[in-house]
């Protein structure tokens, strides 16, 4: 047999994941890990069983930070090396992240949600829908008020845009109202939440969005 489509059978031939899978992407330093640190207690208080996969560019910095935080069982955090390709591991070839999420599903049968944190990248990163059901892109005011105007695929395509560190706007010369208005404009009115993760500002709104999108309301 040497055919291009040998015995094509209906895909996929595997059991569906137990837990919903969401992605959190965004530039380096925008606050992806801080958002997860703020979200975990809120989700846990709502009875959501959560695990996290991190995609650090080098080492397991973010994974270790979460494991040591005391806010999540360290066994619920897995790190996946990105092979110097943070785009590839969440988009073109997400198989290693799929495996990590599958492993968490197998370890914790009661799991409701797997959060897959992208390695810090630029505005072009997007998540494969083979990997996640829904995804967040995080930018921050300290990265520049003009980020929404640059219309990166991450900003445009994500299901929820989080504009973080809004408390810093007066200190970095950003007109927050203009930045948020431009973000709404380039996204055609799709969802956006302004946060200050360190201060816990609007984290409930992000949790609500996750619950509405992929969880039974909790």
């Amino acid at each position: 047999m040497n055919a291009l489509s040998p015995r094509l059978s209906p895909a996929p031939a595997m059991s569906p994941p137990n837990a919903a899978r969401i992605g959190i992407g965004g530039p380096v330093g925008s606050g992806k890990t801080a958002l997860i640190e703020a979200l975990l207690p809120v989700l846990q208080a709502r009875g959501v069983s959560v695990a996290v996969v991190t995609n650090d560019l080098v080492t397991a910095e973010d994974a270790e930070r979460l494991r040591r935080s005391g806010i999540i069982d360290p066994a619920r955090v897995l790190a996946v090396e990105a092979g110097a390709c943070p785009h590839t591991v969440i988009r073109e070839d997400p198989t290693l992240n799929m495996l990590a999420a599958d492993e968490l599903d197998a370890r914790f049968p009661e799991l409701d949600l797997v959060i897959i944190e992208s390695g810090g990248d630029n505005l072009a990163s997007t998540f494969s829908l083979d990997l996640v059901d829904w995804w967040i892109f995080v930018i921050d005011v300290a990265g520049g008020g003009d980020i929404p105007r640059k219309r990166g695929p991450g900003v445009l395509q994500c299901d929820l845009l989080v504009v973080n560190k809004v408390d810093l706007a007066p200190h970095v010369g950003v007109d927050l109202d203009v930045m948020l208005e431009e973000a709404r404009h380039v996204r055609g009115g799709r969802p956006l939440v302004a946060t200050a993760c360190r201060a816990g500002l609007n984290i409930d709104q992000v949790a609500d969005a996750i619950a509405d999108a992929v969880l039974l309301r909790r």
Partner: peptide, 19 residues
């Protein structure tokens, strides 16, 4: 690990024997 990732792709594509 590389074998598992390779298998995961073929599993979803329905390659005979993968499951």
């Amino acid at each position: 690990r590389n074998g598992a990732a390779f298998l995961a792709a073929h599993l979803r594509l329905g390659t005979p024997g993968a499951g």
